[in-house]
């Protein structure tokens, strides 16, 4: 293995995040290796979304460093002081990070195709023709080739989310952040969206950071699960281990609440 391979894709070093008086993350450390699929679980308010939003620069941290591929992302140490990285350099690093949101957030003023090619054309500098070819491949992959020219508002929630996944993938991210991407969907279409994500996990080596309540999906896709409570990692293990034999009592309580007492895992 070369050095580059062992550099973590994501590294949090003593990251602090406060909202007013509420300290959500208090010196959080963790790393995600390249190609890892990590699921974050934990009770509501434990800081899972905050971690993803920090990685997307939708929130500013109050302390510590976040590194992507070993590079300072939002802040760096200069002369012993922690200083913000200028937006121009943040943008270069952010290019490698993509995100899919719970509420899809497609642009309603654009068609499905336009949503997907907007950033590849204007940010990556692809020609429109190249971007369209790639977008059509991706639409095929998410099973929506026939919706190419549809308006986003005409699509169902599940279809919108699949377009949002295609849109994120069109940027060729090295890291993909997924924050409860099926929570806003009707139960019967959750499987479609998870199916698409399973395929992405199988056919690419994108590093994935996943927040989900779909424990079976977490189990199938991820190779590591981090259990959060009050902004700290209280347990970390492979999915097989954490879902069948959690070490911490807090994890056991959380999982039995989420999975329900009658689940096979618990019997």
């Amino acid at each position: 293995m070369t050095d580059r391979d062992t550099t973590p894709a994501i590294e949090f070093r003593g990251v602090v995040k406060r909202f007013g008086d509420n300290t959500v993350l208090d010196g959080l450390d963790f790393t995600v290796a390249k190609g890892d699929r990590v699921t974050l679980i934990g009770p509501s308010g434990s800081g899972k979304t905050t971690i993803l939003r920090l990685l997307m620069t939708l929130e500013e941290s109050n302390g510590g460093l976040i590194l992507i591929d070993g590079e300072p992302y939002t802040h760096e140490m200069r002369g012993g002081k922690r200083v913000a990285v200028p937006e121009k350099r943040r943008r270069q690093v952010r290019r490698r990070v993509g995100m899919v949101f719970q509420q899809f957030n497609l642009f309603p003023n654009m068609s499905v195709l336009e949503n997907i090619i907007e950033a590849p054309v204007h940010v990556l500098g692809l020609s429109t023709a190249q971007a369209v070819v790639r977008a059509e491949e991706l639409l095929e992959q998410v099973g929506l080739a026939d919706k190419r020219d549809a308006r986003c508002t005409q699509l169902s929630g599940g279809q919108q989310q699949r377009v949002a996944i295609a849109r994120a993938l069109a940027m060729d991210p090295e890291i993909l952040l997924l924050d409860e991407v099926t929570s806003a969907l009707d139960p019967e279409i959750v499987a479609d969206v998870l199916g698409v994500l399973r395929e992405v996990a199988e056919t690419t080596d994108i590093t994935m950071l996943i927040v989900t309540h779909e424990m079976q999906f977490a189990r199938d896709v991820s190779n590591r699960v981090l259990m959060f409570d009050h902004g700290r990692i209280i347990e970390e293990a492979e999915p097989e281990v954490i879902f069948t034999a959690p070490r911490e009592e807090r994890t056991q309580q959380f999982l039995s609440a989420v999975l329900g007492e009658d689940t096979a895992d618990r019997s």
């Binding site: 997307m56 949101f101 940010v123 994120a168």
Partner: peptide, 15 residues
């Protein structure tokens, strides 16, 4: 304009 639209634009790295 909903915050999600701004956030999605950031996630796509639009200037």
């Amino acid at each position: 304009v909903p915050a999600g639209q701004w956030e999605a634009s950031t996630a796509l790295n639009l200037g």
